[in-house]
Write a protein that binds this DNA or RNA. Sequence first.
DNA 1: CTTGCATCTGTAGTTACTACAGGTTGTACC
DNA 2: GGTACAACCTGTAGTAACTACAGATGCAAG
Lengths: 133, 133
Amino acid sequence: MDTIGGLSRKTGCHIETIRYYERIGLLSKPPRTEGGHRLYNKEQIKRLVFIRRSRELGFSLDEIRTLFRLVDGERSTCQEVKTVTEQHLQDVSKKISDLRKLQKTLRAISSQCEGGLVPDCPIIESLFEEKRL
Amino acid sequence: MDTIGGLSRKTGCHIETIRYYERIGLLSKPPRTEGGHRLYNKEQIKRLVFIRRSRELGFSLDEIRTLFRLVDGERSTCQEVKTVTEQHLQDVSKKISDLRKLQKTLRAISSQCEGGLVPDCPIIESLFEEKRL
DNA sequence: CTTGCATCTGTAGTTACTACAGGTTGTACC
DNA sequence: GGTACAACCTGTAGTAACTACAGATGCAAG
């Protein structure tokens, strides 16, 4: 059994964050000592690792909630898990392509600027203009 | 002179957002009608376009505040503008590379899953494991 | 003058945490 | 058994950049 501090060290998750996950119902309420300190078992450590790992992969807390529901469901619905993952993958891909466009535009306007003490900075100019991405 | 609704239509910026920008001091307080309705002139439209365009390019409101300070400063410090832009460009590039890694991992774990009604879903398995990105 | 849309202020909600303040518990040491 | 001190507790407020109301007015057309 671990205290919250031990769990924190094992998972690299801040104590406040662990309590936060409990508050929003992502982690279930652990048993307590007489004095009220939380005590965690292996199952709960596993759950928190799952959350951390999913967060690292960019899943939202809501998506993680969905994944837990699927994991805990009687029928192991692998297809649904895959659907959530692929939806998320699409979101990530979309984000990458958006950022690439941004990168291109920023590079373009930045390269036009020579960095001198010119009154008419091409970067500023282009920011005052309507979009032409 | 435009009402807030007109400004909203011209810039594609929600009315609430315009008021929000005013509240946080990003847009200056416009004159009002007798009854208290906001009236905007061309200068303010320009400012809002600047904000929208910068937001589209992913600048934070804080970065935009900095850009305004530079624009309004007596000395037109083009170099500083370029610095802000290139810093932002670096952030964007970093985000892209992070997302690419994510995409790779998600693709990897997703492809391992056949989508059947298997109890041991490889996606779930890998989420219960510590990172190996 | 009335209808009805536009606008007003102020507050609360969103996401995923983080950062306190002010109080209590657990434990190591004497 | 007392005491020092770290670890823990609860509850609230703050972060970014808005969005979404509620409930009250303003304005313009018929």
